[in-house]
Design a protein around this nucleic acid. Structure first.
Lengths: 215, 215
DNA sequence: AATTGCTATGACCAGGTGGTCACATGCTAA
DNA sequence: TTAGCATGTGACCACCTGGTCATAGCAATT
């Protein structure tokens, strides 16, 4: 994972760094790794072609740097969410978490876009590692939620924990995807839902889980 | 959707058609639409570069033809599954359907691969329509299953149907993805599961739903 | 003023892309 | 045998790709 960003980039004025990050983030999110054009990023950030190769070893290095940037953004957010939802029962925490997720992808659609692009593209450098890093967040987070829920007696004692986590993971992920991918959800109509409607749909889903999983 | 395949192609000997379809299917499944190389398909199917453009208008036309080919394969299979699972209660039907899905993607990994590639790639020709066509299958199928389950009194009467369908759709889709995408599932370990283990995991999930959704 | 070291630049490179076209081939009918 | 027509062919086109490199600019130090 090292040797991606060169020291030259880190010495740049922050404003210039941001402009480059912004251009690269947009291009990668739009097209994915391989079809993304370094030329486009270069002209979008108003620097010379040669310069980008003084900042990053190659396209792969640039991509990995951008991905790390995204990861740190997610990590920050997730820590915040974990704190905010520290109190409350299992289902309330779950509901708050899902709403926080929706908020995040609406605030950072390009970060989420890169994640979606990587999901099924074998040709992304170090894809396994990158995906693992992201998925681990979700897995650990849900696991801690479920464990606490069980400890507090809010979930059925005979709950098949791995299966339940799998279900929760699938459900949450798909909900987020449905918010920004048109015609992805077959019943809820999330694509063009207002914030209020989204809150309501989240509520419905959580209620469904509550009835099914609660003690 | 018309004007994709030219009559010349349909006059070809079936064996030759198959070879071309096979090469195109493989390349599109491997790389997705844009990064897929027509040159690779051409040399893989042992025909001349110029020939492919006598069979299809352009790369887009070739892709749409391949996709239609996939769709018809899915449709055939789904009809079969629907018949086979005609009898049995809701959860048994669901279980059989999921197992049939696993069987399908193991039999036709490239067809499923193309679907996965399209999911989050905005730059695929007529993506909206194509996705809609596929997702509609799943939606209608689950809807008919749930309706019948309710009519037979196998599902709780107060079930929030749209939310439940959303959940089922998410769960089934993710399960299939987890079977072929390494490090996608956080808990079940489906990637390297034997057929027997997969059956068991399916059983666990269905059992979880049974407890949660049954009347 | 001269030297030094970092940064900026864009013409340029080899290689690949989707797509074309003048020509060759082979089959059918006259 | 000839004519006509559908099909096969690969050199070729303009364009784009990621990446390089000789040159220039610029500031700080000597």
């Amino acid at each position: 994972m090292r040797d991606t960003v060169l020291p030259t980039f880190l010495n740049l004025a922050p404003a210039k760094q941001e402009k480059i990050i912004d251009a690269a983030l947009g291009e990668f999110a739009d097209k994915g790794y391989e079809p993304a054009s370094v030329n486009v990023m270069v002209s979008a950030s108003g620097i010379a072609k040669g310069s980008i190769y003084q900042y990053f070893k190659d396209k792969k290095g640039l991509f990995l740097y951008i991905f790390q940037y995204c990861i740190s953004l997610v990590r920050q957010t997730l820590i915040g969410v974990k704190e905010e939802t520290q109190e409350g029962d299992f289902f309330t925490r779950l509901e708050k978490s899902l709403l926080a997720g929706v908020d995040f992808i609406q605030r950072h659609p390009r970060v989420y876009g890169i994640y979606l692009k990587i999901l099924f593209d074998q040709r992304v450098p170090q894809r396994e590692e990158l995906l693992k890093a992201v998925r681990q967040f979700a897995g650990e987070y849900l696991q801690s939620l479920v464990r606490q829920g069980q400890a507090r007696g809010e979930l059925r004692a005979d709950l098949a924990v791995p299966a339940a986590i799998f279900l929760l993971d699938a459900l949450l992920d798909r909900f987020l995807q449905a918010v920004i991918v048109p015609s992805f959800d077959v019943t809820l109509g999330l694509e063009k839902a207002t914030p209020g409607e989204i809150r309501q749909k989240v509520g419905e889903l959580i209620q469904l889980l509550r009835v099914g999983l609660a003690a």
